[in-house]
Design a protein around this nucleic acid. Structure first.
Lengths: 111, 111
DNA sequence: ACAATAGTTAACGAATGAGTGAACTATTGC
DNA sequence: GCAATAGTTCACTCATTCGTTAACTATTGT
């Protein structure tokens, strides 16, 4: 996984609407129209968000057999894992000293 | 942890220079000048990035006893954990079916 | 054939955000 | 006291990005 890709993932996830889309697609595949309604975005706006998410590789689309007008979008697992890996790496140092950090965080349940 | 904060974290992390800063501060505390050199940013540019990171709560600063001109910056653990929590939640559905996704990811050790 | 549905594309305007140069504050060393 | 160091703030410019309206393609239903 290239660093430039992680760069792009963060840029793409900076937009609240797109993060909402990612969140919704985490639950399962959705159509463009559904995503527009759920997020309160207009059709053109959603269309562009989806294109950006597609080009970044965060999501992918499938055609449904019954209605050729509809595209079903679903989440790609890899990018989410890549972003988590980056955060893990940032954490690495203070996570491994299970002194200062562990005391620091154990007030809240993690995971 | 409020959703609006996670919103802000992603916005702040969208900038490559600021992600570099976060990465460097993950290794340990650094001074503003060190961060400027390491990232190739100018002093004013770095100063602004640090202010943004401070206001978002991603980092904090300490004064060093010997030289009062110097501010040492260090990373706050909570925001990183919060972003990871968000990503975990997105993953939740396909992570819990330890079928498709587990096969998908088990090439890399996760935690 | 025609209307409705699903979605995309293009052109425009407004807002946001990042970097720069110049001026400024505060502290340290001589 | 004065120069150097460390860093911040301000005013400005440039580019990017987001949403909207309007027009368009493709498909389905009657």
């Amino acid at each position: 996984m290239v660093e430039a890709q992680v760069d792009r993932f963060f840029e793409v996830l900076a937009d609240p609407t797109r993060r909402q889309v990612v969140q919704l697609l985490g639950e399962g595949p959705r159509r463009a129209g559904q995503l527009a309604v759920a997020t309160g975005a207009s059709s053109p706006a959603m269309s562009r968000h989806l294109r950006i998410l597609l080009e970044a590789g965060l999501i992918a689309d499938e055609r449904v057999p019954d209605d050729a007008r509809v595209r079903l979008f679903h989440l790609n697992p890899e990018p989410v894992v890549a972003v988590q890996a980056w955060l893990d790496q940032v954490q690495a140092h203070w996570r491994d000293n299970l002194g200062a950090f562990k005391r620091h965080v154990e007030t809240r349940e993690k995971r």
